[in-house]
Design a binder for these strands. Sequence first.
DNA 1: TCAGCGTATAAACGATTATTTATATTTAAG
DNA 2: CTTAAATATAAATAATCGTTTATACGCTGA
Lengths: 114, 114
Amino acid sequence: MDANKVAEQTERPPLDRNLQAPAFLAKSLSDENRLRILLCVRNRKKSVSGIVEELHLSQPLVSHHLKELRRALLVEVERNGPFVFYKLADGRVIEILRKLHELAQDLVTHRTGF
Amino acid sequence: MDANKVAEQTERPPLDRNLQAPAFLAKSLSDENRLRILLCVRNRKKSVSGIVEELHLSQPLVSHHLKELRRALLVEVERNGPFVFYKLADGRVIEILRKLHELAQDLVTHRTGF
DNA sequence: TCAGCGTATAAACGATTATTTATATTTAAG
DNA sequence: CTTAAATATAAATAATCGTTTATACGCTGA
């Protein structure tokens, strides 16, 4: 690993610019039903009706949330006959959700670890 | 590093339960002004008026967002005379923001890395 | 106690959003 | 071409949210 790679690991990206992008992604993750959908399609692609049955949500609601997740580029679409399959676009979303979950736990137990 | 620590790193927490907690945290991170405030108080504690001047936001708006961030346990409060100081409660929030920022960049450049 | 500063709250408003109900679009089969 | 199934869209509604304006609260010094 060269010096550039090392610098990439330790260097803190700006993050003061482009707050719009992380805020937008966070908004996509701010709804419990959308998170359920993301977890539902994280391993294998699922049809809309499959998601509907698995999560016990109405079909228009699932379609609406999928549209939102597609807008955020968090899911990818694939048509097959009359079915439309959705799958997670990037596994790092799940990692971020884990970190959010872990952080929430620690915050409530007041072990802020800071 | 002992076996427990290793297990902690690789073990996948449930995450299918308690989706409410990460969704709630994500909602706190879904507003650009709140993110600016979080970054503003990430290193040293800041008074409300300090934040107001630094971010060029109205005082009631800053107070409102601080109340929201307090509800999410993301900031801690400390009174000193007539001043009220706020500071970031847990540095991992910044890490999560970085990951969101990085993910957003990669998603738009279509290098999903998945 | 009064005045002034820092902060919090209330009320009001517009905008966005999650959800439901109803309808349209698309696809494949007969 | 017609029909049925899968999915998407539209319209409508209720709820939430971000912001502004105005006002109240709390602390400190005179």
